[in-house]
Design a protein around this nucleic acid. Structure first.
Lengths: 136, 136
DNA sequence: CGGCATCCCTAAAGATACTG
DNA sequence: CAGTATCTTTAGGGATGCCG
C-alpha cells in the first residue's frame, strides 16, 4: 500500500470516493468547501500569511463568529495553519498549508469566474424575469 | 462600449467587481455558486442533457424541492436551459448553456479535489482531534 | 488582539401530500 | 413524469458580553 505512486493513489481515490453518493465522505467535504467564506478565506491567504484582524478587514462583511468558525474548520481539515506569537497583545497568523495550496487554484477560479461573469448573469436574469412577466 | 474585445471586457470586469466587497453583485454570485447542489448538478450535466428524473437519481439524496429550486435558479442565471417535450407524460430535459459550460471546469475541479483529497483531510482531522484531546 | 460563550432569530432545507 | 404547496425542522449566522 505504501508503494503506490501518486498517480496510483489518485486513481484509487477516484474509484473509492464518489461525491454523488449522499453518504460518501467526499460528499461531506464537497459540501464543506462549497462555502463562500471558504473561497474568500483561501484566496485571501494566497499571497502569504495574514493576521486575524487583517483577514476580517479583507473579507468585508464577515462576522467574527463566522471568521473564527471557518478558520477553525479549515485548520482542522488541514487546509490552514495557525501560529501564535505570545506577545502582549497576542499575535495570530494564518497561512495556507500545502493541502490548502492545492485547493487554492480552484478557489481562485471560482472567485474569478464570479467576478468576470456577473454581468452575463445579470443580463440572463433580466431576460428570464421579462419572459415570466410578459408571456408574449 | 460595443467595440470592446473579449479581453478588454474581462479586464473591465476584473476591475469593476470585487467579491471581497459584501455589497458587490459578484459576491452574491460567488455565494450562489458556492453550493454543493450547484456543483453536483452542473457536473451531472457535463456529458449532455439529462431528464429531471435522471438527475434526481444521479445526485443521491437530493430532495425534489432542492433539485427543482436549484434548477430554477440556474436557469434564471443562464447556466442551464430547460426544454419541455409535450408528450404524455411530459418530458423535461436540462442542459448546460454556454455560460454553464464556462463554469463546468471549475465545478468539476472542486468535485475532483474533494474526491481525491478526502483521505488527507481525514488524516488531518484525526491529528487535530488527537492534539486537542491529549495536550502532549 | 484574538478570541470563546451565549442568546436569538431567520432562512434554508427536509418530509409529506397533492396535481397537470 | 415533473413538478407545486405546505408544514416542520435544522442550521447558518448576527449581536452581545466576557476573557487571557
Amino acid at each position: 500500500m505504501t508503494t503506490r505512486t501518486a498517480t496510483q493513489q489518485r486513481e484509487h481515490a477516484r474509484v473509492a470516493y464518489d461525491a454523488y453518493l449522499a453518504t460518501c465522505p467526499a460528499r461531506q467535504l464537497l459540501d464543506r468547501i462549497s462555502d463562500k467564506w471558504v473561497s474568500l478565506l483561501l484566496t485571501a491567504l494566497a499571497d502569504g500569511p495574514q493576521r486575524y484582524s487583517s483577514l476580517s478587514r479583507t473579507i468585508a462583511g464577515v462576522s467574527q463568529k463566522m471568521l473564527t468558525q471557518t478558520l477553525r474548520t479549515l485548520e482542522r481539515d488541514g487546509l490552514v495553519s495557525r501560529s501564535v506569537t505570545p506577545t502582549v497583545p497576542v499575535r495570530v497568523d494564518y497561512a495556507l498549508t500545502p493541502l490548502g495550496v492545492s485547493l487554492l487554484p480552484v478557489m481562485q477560479a471560482i472567485k474569478d469566474w464570479a467576478e468576470t461573469h456577473i454581468e452575463q448573469v445579470t443580463v440572463a436574469r433580466d431576460t428570464y424575469d421579462k419572459r415570466s412577466t410578459s408571456p408574449g
